[in-house]
Design a protein around this nucleic acid. Structure first.
Lengths: 158, 158
DNA sequence: GAAATATATGTAGTTAACTACGTATATTTG
DNA sequence: CAAATATACGTAGTTAACTACATATATTTC
């Protein structure tokens, strides 16, 4: 990985992705080591439902930042695992309200201490002179103001 | 994305991936706008071959940080596009040496000014109080010393 | 209130990475 | 030097996201 790491900022997408994958894989191993039957990709759904106990599919998708088809397939898995269930909204017949089951709530409780360990470990890992979470937030803010595409266009013209 | 963004460091993998995707998509649009027939995912291969003009498949894979099957499928695409070609290594008959074609070299030249624009745009985007590239490098260094998994285990025990 | 538009959900197919496994050649070891 | 092991490459199948399209219900507008 020498050339790519030395290529600097051009390889930023590749490096972000690699880091994400690495953390996700370890996350899976951590759940496993704690005998919790849980996949890291389920995290956004479960975590969101913890704070907002009833959400439609599209609302949930928006909340976790995935497209709704991706969310639907996550929900199918979670439904199969009996971690979530859903019911029709009486006000809006198109809507399916997603909720945690009792099993889901128990799982959530089981996971709390593991999450705390993960948070500690991640804080250790990211306790560096440049904080990666803050860096992400700052880049996202800049992107909101003007996209990468628009910036490259402007640079080219200027 | 409110709940997830507020969940802090636990959602780090999700957020890294999302940022990576966003940059990659815009990257594709930038090449397109400059009338260059190039996909961002090809970048690591091309860029590496620019600096190391002859590499075996596994060597190249290691260099770009992908698995070799992923690399093979990238190489197939690039071969179809006539951007790279390969020949047998005379010293080691198992090996297939990958090289840029003339077309590949021309493409590389064409891309130079676009890369410069991208670098400028990315520098703008990442010119923040916490530098994301440095943050990634720092986290990677910490991970090299002790993985996320090992750290979480240690925290749990301690 | 009928037509047009918007919203919520779902399905099908694609993509770009991965793991697992197999084969051929090279290298090391008893 | 034969056997065991390692390395290089390849194929098949999986995964987790995506886009594009379809359908049902709700809301808005003329």
């Amino acid at each position: 990985m020498n050339v790519i790491n030395e290529s600097g900022i051009l390889a930023i997408a590749t490096r972000l992705q690699r880091l994400s994958d690495q953390l996700r894989k370890d996350g899976f191993q951590i759940y496993k080591a704690n005998e919790i039957d849980f996949e890291p990709k389920w995290f956004p759904v479960i975590y969101t439902l913890h704070f907002r106990p009833q959400l439609g599919v599209v609302e949930l998708a928006a909340e976790i930042g995935y497209t709704h088809p991706s969310t639907i397939s996550l929900l199918k898995e979670l439904e199969k695992e009996r971690i979530i269930r859903s019911k029709k909204d009486k006000q809006d017949e198109r809507k399916r309200l997603i909720q945690l089951t009792e099993k889901g709530k128990k799982l959530l409780e089981q996971m709390q201490p593991v999450w705390e360990n993960m948070v500690s470990a991640l804080e250790e890992l990211t306790d560096t002179s440049n904080n990666i979470m803050k860096a992400i937030a700052e880049v996202e803010k800049n992107l909101d103001e003007l996209s990468f595409f628009e910036r490259a266009k402007r640079v080219a013209k200027g």
